[in-house]
Design a protein around this nucleic acid. Structure first.
Lengths: 236, 236
DNA sequence: TTTTCCCTCCCCCAAAATAGCGAGGAGCAG
DNA sequence: CTGCTCCTCGCTATTTTGGGGGAGGGAAAA
Protein backbone atom coordinates (compact mmCIF):
# COMPACT_ATOMS: atom_id res chain seq x y z
CA UNK A 1 0.00 0.00 0.00
CA UNK A 2 2.74 2.38 0.91
CA UNK A 3 4.57 1.36 -2.25
CA UNK A 4 1.78 3.09 -4.09
CA UNK A 5 3.50 6.26 -2.90
CA UNK A 6 7.10 5.61 -3.78
CA UNK A 7 7.25 7.12 -7.23
CA UNK A 8 5.24 10.08 -6.08
CA UNK A 9 7.57 10.75 -3.18
CA UNK A 10 10.47 10.45 -5.58
CA UNK A 11 8.89 13.05 -7.80
CA UNK A 12 8.25 15.33 -4.86
CA UNK A 13 11.85 15.11 -3.75
CA UNK A 14 12.94 16.42 -7.12
CA UNK A 15 10.28 19.07 -7.38
CA UNK A 16 11.77 22.46 -8.05
CA UNK A 17 8.68 24.57 -8.32
CA UNK A 18 5.24 24.85 -6.91
CA UNK A 19 3.44 23.58 -9.98
CA UNK A 20 5.10 20.21 -9.46
CA UNK A 21 3.63 20.19 -5.97
CA UNK A 22 0.28 21.15 -7.33
CA UNK A 23 0.20 18.29 -9.76
CA UNK A 24 1.39 15.91 -7.06
CA UNK A 25 -1.52 16.93 -4.90
CA UNK A 26 -3.97 16.23 -7.70
CA UNK A 27 -2.24 12.93 -8.35
CA UNK A 28 -2.57 11.97 -4.69
CA UNK A 29 -6.25 12.78 -4.73
CA UNK A 30 -6.84 10.46 -7.63
CA UNK A 31 -4.84 7.62 -6.14
CA UNK A 32 -6.72 7.64 -2.89
CA UNK A 33 -10.02 8.64 -4.40
CA UNK A 34 -10.81 11.32 -1.90
CA UNK A 35 -12.82 14.43 -2.49
CA UNK A 36 -10.09 16.98 -1.99
CA UNK A 37 -6.53 17.42 -0.82
CA UNK A 38 -5.28 20.75 0.35
CA UNK A 39 -1.89 22.10 1.11
CA UNK A 40 -2.31 25.51 2.61
CA UNK A 41 0.41 27.83 3.84
CA UNK A 42 -1.40 29.80 6.49
CA UNK A 43 1.39 31.93 7.83
CA UNK A 44 4.65 32.62 6.09
CA UNK A 45 7.11 35.42 5.61
CA UNK A 46 6.11 35.70 1.98
CA UNK A 47 2.69 35.61 0.48
CA UNK A 48 0.24 32.99 1.48
CA UNK A 49 -0.28 30.35 -1.13
CA UNK A 50 -1.57 26.88 -1.54
CA UNK A 51 -1.59 23.74 -3.62
CA UNK A 52 -5.07 22.39 -3.51
CA UNK A 53 -7.93 20.74 -5.30
CA UNK A 54 -10.70 22.87 -3.82
CA UNK A 55 -12.96 24.61 -6.32
CA UNK A 56 -11.81 28.13 -7.01
CA UNK A 57 -15.00 29.89 -5.87
CA UNK A 58 -14.59 28.38 -2.43
CA UNK A 59 -10.94 29.39 -2.26
CA UNK A 60 -11.80 32.93 -3.26
CA UNK A 61 -14.54 33.16 -0.69
CA UNK A 62 -12.25 31.73 1.96
CA UNK A 63 -9.51 34.24 1.25
CA UNK A 64 -11.79 37.20 0.85
CA UNK A 65 -13.61 36.59 4.12
CA UNK A 66 -10.47 35.72 6.04
CA UNK A 67 -12.06 32.45 7.06
CA UNK A 68 -8.78 31.17 8.48
CA UNK A 69 -9.38 33.41 11.48
CA UNK A 70 -12.56 31.55 12.41
CA UNK A 71 -12.01 28.13 10.86
CA UNK A 72 -11.92 25.60 13.73
CA UNK A 73 -9.63 23.41 11.66
CA UNK A 74 -7.00 26.10 11.34
CA UNK A 75 -7.36 27.27 14.91
CA UNK A 76 -7.14 23.79 16.34
CA UNK A 77 -4.18 22.78 14.21
CA UNK A 78 -2.41 25.97 15.05
CA UNK A 79 -2.32 25.15 18.72
CA UNK A 80 -1.71 21.46 18.34
CA UNK A 81 0.78 18.98 16.98
CA UNK A 82 -1.24 16.00 15.96
CA UNK A 83 -3.53 15.33 13.03
CA UNK A 84 -7.01 16.62 13.67
CA UNK A 85 -10.16 14.84 12.64
CA UNK A 86 -12.72 17.44 11.67
CA UNK A 87 -15.56 15.73 13.40
CA UNK A 88 -13.82 15.95 16.75
CA UNK A 89 -13.71 19.73 16.56
CA UNK A 90 -16.09 22.17 18.11
CA UNK A 91 -18.42 23.37 15.38
CA UNK A 92 -20.92 24.87 17.79
CA UNK A 93 -20.14 28.52 17.28
CA UNK A 94 -22.25 30.33 14.74
CA UNK A 95 -19.50 31.39 12.33
CA UNK A 96 -18.02 27.89 12.40
CA UNK A 97 -21.30 26.29 11.42
CA UNK A 98 -21.79 28.87 8.70
CA UNK A 99 -18.31 28.14 7.40
CA UNK A 100 -18.98 24.41 7.32
CA UNK A 101 -22.26 24.89 5.50
CA UNK A 102 -20.64 27.18 2.96
CA UNK A 103 -17.97 24.57 2.38
CA UNK A 104 -20.48 21.82 1.72
CA UNK A 105 -22.39 24.11 -0.60
CA UNK A 106 -19.16 24.65 -2.54
CA UNK A 107 -18.57 20.97 -3.11
CA UNK A 108 -16.48 20.01 -0.13
CA UNK A 109 -16.89 16.65 1.55
CA UNK A 110 -18.24 16.44 5.06
CA UNK A 111 -15.30 14.54 6.54
CA UNK A 112 -11.69 15.54 6.85
CA UNK A 113 -8.52 15.44 8.75
CA UNK A 114 -5.78 18.04 8.80
CA UNK A 115 -2.15 18.00 9.77
CA UNK A 116 -0.23 21.04 11.03
CA UNK A 117 3.34 21.65 9.97
CA UNK A 118 5.73 24.34 11.07
CA UNK A 119 8.85 25.89 9.67
CA UNK A 120 11.76 27.59 11.42
CA UNK A 121 10.57 31.14 10.91
CA UNK A 122 7.09 30.66 12.24
CA UNK A 123 5.82 29.36 8.94
CA UNK A 124 2.70 27.41 9.48
CA UNK A 125 0.93 25.22 6.99
CA UNK A 126 -1.87 22.69 6.84
CA UNK A 127 -2.31 19.53 4.87
CA UNK A 128 -5.90 18.47 4.69
CA UNK A 129 -7.66 15.40 3.38
CA UNK A 130 -11.30 16.00 2.60
CA UNK A 131 -13.80 13.26 1.87
CA UNK A 132 -17.52 12.69 1.50
CA UNK A 133 -18.80 9.74 3.48
CA UNK A 134 -20.63 8.53 6.55
CA UNK A 135 -18.88 8.23 9.89
CA UNK A 136 -18.28 4.48 9.65
CA UNK A 137 -16.90 4.59 6.13
CA UNK A 138 -14.74 7.50 7.18
CA UNK A 139 -13.46 5.55 10.16
CA UNK A 140 -12.43 2.66 7.91
CA UNK A 141 -10.84 5.08 5.50
CA UNK A 142 -8.73 6.83 8.13
CA UNK A 143 -7.60 3.53 9.61
CA UNK A 144 -6.62 2.22 6.20
CA UNK A 145 -4.97 5.19 4.60
CA UNK A 146 -4.00 7.48 7.44
CA UNK A 147 -0.38 6.37 7.46
CA UNK A 148 0.01 6.73 3.73
CA UNK A 149 -1.55 10.13 3.61
CA UNK A 150 0.41 11.36 6.59
CA UNK A 151 3.61 10.33 4.93
CA UNK A 152 2.56 12.03 1.74
CA UNK A 153 1.53 15.09 3.71
CA UNK A 154 4.93 15.33 5.34
CA UNK A 155 6.65 15.12 2.02
CA UNK A 156 4.44 17.71 0.45
CA UNK A 157 4.92 19.94 3.44
CA UNK A 158 8.64 19.60 3.57
CA UNK A 159 9.00 20.29 -0.10
CA UNK A 160 6.60 23.18 0.04
CA UNK A 161 8.23 24.83 3.02
CA UNK A 162 11.65 24.34 1.49
CA UNK A 163 10.55 25.95 -1.75
CA UNK A 164 8.84 28.70 0.15
CA UNK A 165 11.91 29.41 2.20
CA UNK A 166 14.44 29.43 -0.58
CA UNK A 167 14.49 33.15 -1.04
CA UNK A 168 15.47 33.89 2.52
CA UNK A 169 18.57 35.97 3.01
CA UNK A 170 21.96 34.32 3.35
CA UNK A 171 22.32 35.57 6.89
CA UNK A 172 25.39 37.30 8.12
CA UNK A 173 26.97 35.57 11.06
CA UNK A 174 27.06 37.28 14.40
CA UNK A 175 30.13 37.26 16.61
CA UNK A 176 29.91 35.19 19.79
CA UNK A 177 29.48 38.22 21.98
CA UNK A 178 26.83 39.64 19.74
CA UNK A 179 24.99 36.36 19.92
CA UNK A 180 25.26 36.36 23.69
CA UNK A 181 23.97 39.89 23.88
CA UNK A 182 20.96 39.31 21.67
CA UNK A 183 20.17 36.05 23.40
CA UNK A 184 20.00 37.73 26.78
CA UNK A 185 17.95 40.60 25.43
CA UNK A 186 15.54 38.11 23.84
CA UNK A 187 15.21 36.52 27.27
CA UNK A 188 13.92 39.80 28.62
CA UNK A 189 17.07 41.11 30.26
CA UNK A 190 17.74 44.83 30.26
CA UNK A 191 21.06 46.07 28.96
CA UNK A 192 22.34 46.49 32.50
CA UNK A 193 21.32 42.97 33.47
CA UNK A 194 22.77 41.47 30.34
CA UNK A 195 26.05 43.31 30.86
CA UNK A 196 26.24 42.06 34.40
CA UNK A 197 25.55 38.51 33.27
CA UNK A 198 28.30 38.70 30.66
CA UNK A 199 30.62 40.42 33.12
CA UNK A 200 31.31 43.36 30.86
CA UNK A 201 30.46 47.03 31.10
CA UNK A 202 27.09 48.14 29.93
CA UNK A 203 28.79 50.28 27.34
CA UNK A 204 30.57 47.30 25.82
CA UNK A 205 27.33 45.45 25.65
CA UNK A 206 25.87 48.42 23.87
CA UNK A 207 28.56 48.19 21.22
CA UNK A 208 27.64 44.56 20.58
CA UNK A 209 23.99 45.39 20.27
CA UNK A 210 24.75 48.18 17.85
CA UNK A 211 27.03 46.10 15.69
CA UNK A 212 24.51 43.27 15.70
CA UNK A 213 21.84 45.74 14.71
CA UNK A 214 24.04 46.93 11.89
CA UNK A 215 24.83 43.44 10.65
CA UNK A 216 21.20 42.44 10.70
CA UNK A 217 20.04 45.66 9.13
CA UNK A 218 17.80 46.24 12.11
CA UNK A 219 16.35 49.55 13.18
CA UNK A 220 16.35 48.90 16.91
CA UNK A 221 17.02 46.22 19.49
CA UNK A 222 13.62 44.61 19.20
CA UNK A 223 13.98 44.43 15.45
CA UNK A 224 17.44 42.90 15.77
CA UNK A 225 16.24 40.26 18.20
CA UNK A 226 13.27 39.45 16.00
CA UNK A 227 15.55 39.10 12.99
CA UNK A 228 18.08 36.98 14.79
CA UNK A 229 15.34 34.72 16.11
CA UNK A 230 13.64 34.19 12.82
CA UNK A 231 16.97 33.52 11.12
CA UNK A 232 17.83 30.96 13.77
CA UNK A 233 20.90 32.90 14.88
CA UNK A 234 19.79 32.81 18.49
CA UNK A 235 17.29 30.74 20.39
CA UNK A 236 15.44 31.14 23.63
CA UNK B 1 8.13 -2.94 4.24
CA UNK B 2 6.05 -0.23 5.80
CA UNK B 3 3.87 -2.98 7.25
CA UNK B 4 6.80 -3.77 9.44
CA UNK B 5 5.84 -0.59 11.25
CA UNK B 6 2.14 -0.98 11.67
CA UNK B 7 2.00 -2.57 15.07
CA UNK B 8 4.63 -0.20 16.36
CA UNK B 9 2.71 2.82 15.18
CA UNK B 10 -0.36 1.36 16.79
CA UNK B 11 1.51 1.04 20.04
CA UNK B 12 2.80 4.58 19.75
CA UNK B 13 -0.65 5.94 19.20
CA UNK B 14 -1.71 4.45 22.50
CA UNK B 15 1.40 5.45 24.40
CA UNK B 16 0.55 7.39 27.51
CA UNK B 17 3.98 7.91 28.96
CA UNK B 18 7.53 8.49 27.93
CA UNK B 19 8.78 5.02 28.78
CA UNK B 20 6.53 3.63 26.06
CA UNK B 21 8.25 5.98 23.65
CA UNK B 22 11.60 4.91 24.91
CA UNK B 23 10.90 1.23 24.35
CA UNK B 24 9.49 2.03 20.93
CA UNK B 25 12.72 3.76 20.00
CA UNK B 26 14.74 0.71 21.05
CA UNK B 27 12.33 -1.51 19.17
CA UNK B 28 12.77 0.58 16.05
CA UNK B 29 16.51 0.36 16.31
CA UNK B 30 16.40 -3.41 16.39
CA UNK B 31 13.99 -3.70 13.49
CA UNK B 32 16.07 -1.57 11.20
CA UNK B 33 19.35 -2.71 12.58
CA UNK B 34 20.88 0.73 12.91
CA UNK B 35 23.42 1.86 15.42
CA UNK B 36 21.30 4.37 17.29
CA UNK B 37 18.02 6.19 17.21
CA UNK B 38 17.57 9.44 19.06
CA UNK B 39 14.60 11.51 19.92
CA UNK B 40 15.84 14.70 21.44
CA UNK B 41 13.73 17.61 22.63
CA UNK B 42 16.13 20.49 22.16
CA UNK B 43 13.90 23.38 23.02
CA UNK B 44 10.80 23.19 25.07
CA UNK B 45 9.02 25.21 27.66
CA UNK B 46 9.73 22.49 30.17
CA UNK B 47 12.85 20.51 30.78
CA UNK B 48 14.80 19.05 27.96
CA UNK B 49 14.57 15.32 27.66
CA UNK B 50 15.07 12.57 25.22
CA UNK B 51 14.28 9.01 24.25
CA UNK B 52 17.42 7.59 22.83
CA UNK B 53 19.73 4.64 22.47
CA UNK B 54 22.97 6.58 22.81
CA UNK B 55 25.34 5.38 25.52
CA UNK B 56 24.88 7.32 28.72
CA UNK B 57 28.45 8.68 28.95
CA UNK B 58 28.02 10.38 25.61
CA UNK B 59 24.69 11.86 26.64
CA UNK B 60 26.17 13.18 29.85
CA UNK B 61 29.10 14.72 28.05
CA UNK B 62 26.79 16.24 25.48
CA UNK B 63 24.57 17.84 28.08
CA UNK B 64 27.38 18.96 30.33
CA UNK B 65 29.29 20.69 27.53
CA UNK B 66 26.22 22.20 25.95
CA UNK B 67 27.16 20.57 22.69
CA UNK B 68 23.83 21.47 21.15
CA UNK B 69 25.13 25.01 20.79
CA UNK B 70 27.91 23.92 18.44
CA UNK B 71 26.50 20.71 16.99
CA UNK B 72 26.12 21.29 13.23
CA UNK B 73 23.27 18.79 13.21
CA UNK B 74 21.24 20.76 15.71
CA UNK B 75 22.12 24.12 14.21
CA UNK B 76 21.29 23.03 10.70
CA UNK B 77 18.03 21.38 11.67
CA UNK B 78 17.08 24.41 13.68
CA UNK B 79 17.14 26.64 10.66
CA UNK B 80 15.71 24.14 8.23
CA UNK B 81 12.67 22.02 7.54
CA UNK B 82 13.94 19.00 5.73
CA UNK B 83 15.76 15.88 6.89
CA UNK B 84 19.47 16.52 7.10
CA UNK B 85 22.09 13.99 6.10
CA UNK B 86 25.05 14.44 8.43
CA UNK B 87 27.62 14.10 5.72
CA UNK B 88 26.22 17.09 3.85
CA UNK B 89 26.86 19.36 6.81
CA UNK B 90 29.83 21.60 7.35
CA UNK B 91 32.13 19.83 9.77
CA UNK B 92 35.09 22.08 9.01
CA UNK B 93 35.05 24.14 12.17
CA UNK B 94 37.30 22.97 14.96
CA UNK B 95 34.65 22.39 17.64
CA UNK B 96 32.45 20.56 15.16
CA UNK B 97 35.22 18.14 14.23
CA UNK B 98 36.04 17.62 17.89
CA UNK B 99 32.39 16.89 18.59
CA UNK B 100 32.24 14.34 15.78
CA UNK B 101 35.40 12.63 16.98
CA UNK B 102 34.09 12.49 20.52
CA UNK B 103 30.90 10.94 19.26
CA UNK B 104 32.73 8.21 17.37
CA UNK B 105 34.88 7.55 20.41
CA UNK B 106 31.70 7.07 22.41
CA UNK B 107 30.32 4.43 20.14
CA UNK B 108 28.30 6.45 17.66
CA UNK B 109 28.17 5.52 14.01
CA UNK B 110 29.71 7.76 11.40
CA UNK B 111 26.57 8.24 9.34
CA UNK B 112 23.29 9.78 10.26
CA UNK B 113 20.30 11.78 9.27
CA UNK B 114 18.18 13.99 11.45
CA UNK B 115 14.72 15.39 11.15
CA UNK B 116 13.59 18.63 12.79
CA UNK B 117 10.13 18.89 14.30
CA UNK B 118 8.39 21.86 15.80
CA UNK B 119 5.49 22.33 18.15
CA UNK B 120 3.09 25.22 18.59
CA UNK B 121 4.88 26.85 21.51
CA UNK B 122 8.30 26.97 19.96
CA UNK B 123 9.09 23.42 20.98
CA UNK B 124 11.84 22.04 18.86
CA UNK B 125 12.96 18.47 18.68
CA UNK B 126 15.16 16.21 16.61
CA UNK B 127 14.77 12.64 15.50
CA UNK B 128 18.05 11.13 14.46
CA UNK B 129 19.05 7.87 12.83
CA UNK B 130 22.65 6.96 13.41
CA UNK B 131 24.49 4.20 11.61
CA UNK B 132 27.97 2.85 11.03
CA UNK B 133 28.78 2.25 7.39
CA UNK B 134 30.53 3.46 4.27
CA UNK B 135 29.03 6.11 2.05
CA UNK B 136 27.68 3.65 -0.53
CA UNK B 137 26.07 1.35 2.02
CA UNK B 138 24.64 4.39 3.72
CA UNK B 139 23.24 5.64 0.43
CA UNK B 140 21.46 2.33 -0.13
CA UNK B 141 20.22 2.35 3.42
CA UNK B 142 18.72 5.82 3.21
CA UNK B 143 17.08 5.07 -0.12
CA UNK B 144 15.62 1.87 1.22
CA UNK B 145 14.49 2.84 4.68
CA UNK B 146 14.24 6.61 4.65
CA UNK B 147 10.50 6.60 4.17
CA UNK B 148 9.88 4.07 6.89
CA UNK B 149 12.04 5.85 9.38
CA UNK B 150 10.62 9.23 8.54
CA UNK B 151 7.17 7.91 9.16
CA UNK B 152 8.28 6.41 12.42
CA UNK B 153 10.04 9.65 13.31
CA UNK B 154 6.91 11.66 12.75
CA UNK B 155 4.92 9.34 14.92
CA UNK B 156 7.47 9.41 17.68
CA UNK B 157 7.67 13.16 17.42
CA UNK B 158 3.98 13.72 17.44
CA UNK B 159 3.51 11.47 20.40
CA UNK B 160 6.45 12.95 22.24
CA UNK B 161 5.42 16.53 21.68
CA UNK B 162 1.89 15.71 22.67
CA UNK B 163 3.08 14.10 25.89
CA UNK B 164 5.55 16.88 26.47
CA UNK B 165 2.97 19.53 25.86
CA UNK B 166 0.26 18.07 28.02
CA UNK B 167 1.14 20.00 31.11
CA UNK B 168 1.74 23.25 29.34
CA UNK B 169 -0.75 26.00 29.62
CA UNK B 170 -2.54 26.40 26.34
CA UNK B 171 -0.92 29.75 26.00
CA UNK B 172 -3.19 32.69 25.95
CA UNK B 173 -3.94 33.89 22.50
CA UNK B 174 -3.24 37.50 21.67
CA UNK B 175 -6.03 39.76 20.53
CA UNK B 176 -5.88 40.97 16.92
CA UNK B 177 -4.67 44.39 17.91
CA UNK B 178 -2.03 42.97 20.20
CA UNK B 179 -0.82 40.81 17.36
CA UNK B 180 -0.71 43.83 15.07
CA UNK B 181 1.23 45.81 17.61
CA UNK B 182 3.85 43.14 18.24
CA UNK B 183 4.16 42.42 14.56
CA UNK B 184 4.97 46.03 13.79
CA UNK B 185 7.40 46.26 16.68
CA UNK B 186 9.10 43.09 15.47
CA UNK B 187 9.45 44.77 12.11
CA UNK B 188 11.47 47.53 13.74
CA UNK B 189 8.79 50.19 14.07
CA UNK B 190 8.82 52.49 17.08
CA UNK B 191 5.67 52.90 19.13
CA UNK B 192 4.89 56.17 17.35
CA UNK B 193 5.35 54.64 13.91
CA UNK B 194 3.33 51.57 14.77
CA UNK B 195 0.53 53.69 16.17
CA UNK B 196 0.48 55.77 13.04
CA UNK B 197 0.39 52.66 10.89
CA UNK B 198 -2.52 51.26 12.85
CA UNK B 199 -4.22 54.64 12.87
CA UNK B 200 -4.58 54.73 16.61
CA UNK B 201 -3.07 56.93 19.28
CA UNK B 202 0.28 55.98 20.68
CA UNK B 203 -1.35 55.58 24.09
CA UNK B 204 -3.69 52.96 22.75
CA UNK B 205 -0.85 51.14 21.14
CA UNK B 206 0.93 51.14 24.46
CA UNK B 207 -2.03 49.51 26.10
CA UNK B 208 -1.82 46.68 23.57
CA UNK B 209 1.86 46.22 24.09
CA UNK B 210 1.41 46.11 27.83
CA UNK B 211 -1.42 43.62 27.74
CA UNK B 212 0.51 41.48 25.29
CA UNK B 213 3.51 41.62 27.61
CA UNK B 214 1.29 40.58 30.46
CA UNK B 215 -0.28 37.70 28.56
CA UNK B 216 3.09 36.44 27.43
CA UNK B 217 4.67 36.88 30.82
CA UNK B 218 7.28 39.10 29.22
CA UNK B 219 9.47 41.58 31.03
CA UNK B 220 9.71 44.13 28.24
CA UNK B 221 8.79 44.69 24.64
CA UNK B 222 11.78 42.86 23.22
CA UNK B 223 11.00 39.88 25.40
CA UNK B 224 7.38 39.91 24.35
CA UNK B 225 8.29 40.04 20.67
CA UNK B 226 10.81 37.23 21.10
CA UNK B 227 8.23 35.11 22.89
CA UNK B 228 5.53 35.79 20.37
CA UNK B 229 7.88 34.96 17.54
CA UNK B 230 9.10 31.71 18.97
CA UNK B 231 5.55 30.66 19.80
CA UNK B 232 4.49 31.43 16.28
CA UNK B 233 1.99 34.06 17.42
CA UNK B 234 3.42 36.60 15.03
CA UNK B 235 5.62 36.40 12.00
CA UNK B 236 7.87 38.79 10.14
C1' DT C 1 -28.93 40.45 31.66
C1' DT C 2 -24.74 40.67 33.52
C1' DT C 3 -20.12 39.87 32.96
C1' DT C 4 -16.18 39.82 30.48
C1' DC C 5 -13.26 40.83 27.26
C1' DC C 6 -11.61 44.14 23.41
C1' DC C 7 -10.85 48.72 21.58
C1' DT C 8 -10.10 53.49 22.14
C1' DC C 9 -8.32 57.72 24.43
C1' DC C 10 -5.91 60.86 28.16
C1' DC C 11 -2.48 62.49 32.04
C1' DC C 12 2.52 62.61 34.39
C1' DC C 13 7.21 61.17 35.41
C1' DA C 14 11.02 58.03 36.04
C1' DA C 15 13.80 54.70 33.74
C1' DA C 16 15.88 52.88 29.84
C1' DA C 17 17.54 52.90 25.27
C1' DT C 18 19.66 55.41 21.28
C1' DA C 19 22.95 58.63 18.93
C1' DG C 20 27.08 60.96 18.63
C1' DC C 21 31.87 61.55 19.67
C1' DG C 22 35.87 58.97 21.30
C1' DA C 23 40.09 55.20 22.81
C1' DG C 24 43.33 51.02 23.10
C1' DG C 25 44.82 45.95 22.99
C1' DA C 26 44.46 40.96 21.20
C1' DG C 27 44.46 37.80 17.58
C1' DC C 28 44.56 36.29 12.95
C1' DA C 29 45.35 36.29 7.72
C1' DG C 30 47.58 38.14 3.68
C1' DC D 1 54.15 44.38 9.02
C1' DT D 2 49.64 45.77 7.87
C1' DG D 3 45.10 45.52 7.86
C1' DC D 4 41.13 43.25 9.61
C1' DT D 5 37.71 41.93 13.04
C1' DC D 6 36.74 41.20 17.70
C1' DC D 7 36.67 42.66 22.55
C1' DT D 8 36.90 46.18 26.00
C1' DC D 9 35.98 50.85 28.16
C1' DG D 10 34.59 56.12 28.59
C1' DC D 11 31.53 60.62 28.08
C1' DT D 12 26.98 63.69 27.16
C1' DA D 13 22.55 64.64 25.25
C1' DT D 14 18.21 63.30 23.28
C1' DT D 15 14.59 60.17 22.33
C1' DT D 16 11.88 56.29 23.47
C1' DT D 17 9.77 53.14 26.78
C1' DG D 18 7.86 51.71 31.07
C1' DG D 19 4.75 52.11 35.12
C1' DG D 20 1.06 54.29 37.52
C1' DG D 21 -3.16 56.21 37.49
C1' DG D 22 -7.75 56.73 34.87
C1' DA D 23 -12.65 56.35 31.50
C1' DG D 24 -16.19 55.03 28.13
C1' DG D 25 -18.42 52.28 24.29
C1' DG D 26 -19.20 47.91 22.00
C1' DA D 27 -19.52 43.05 21.11
C1' DA D 28 -19.80 38.49 22.55
C1' DA D 29 -20.34 35.00 25.76
C1' DA D 30 -22.29 33.00 30.17
Amino acid sequence: MARKLDDLLERLGDATDLSALDSAVFDLRDRYDVEHLVYHSVKSSGDQWAALTYPQPWVDAYVENNFQTIDPVVLSCFRGFTPVDWKRLDWSSRPARALFGEGIANGLGNQGFSLPIRGPSGQFALFTVNHRSGDDTWGKFTRGYMHDLLLAAHFVNERALALDGEGHAPHQALSPRETDALTLLAAGKSRAQAAERLKISEHTLRVYIESARFKLGALNTTHAVANALSRGLICL
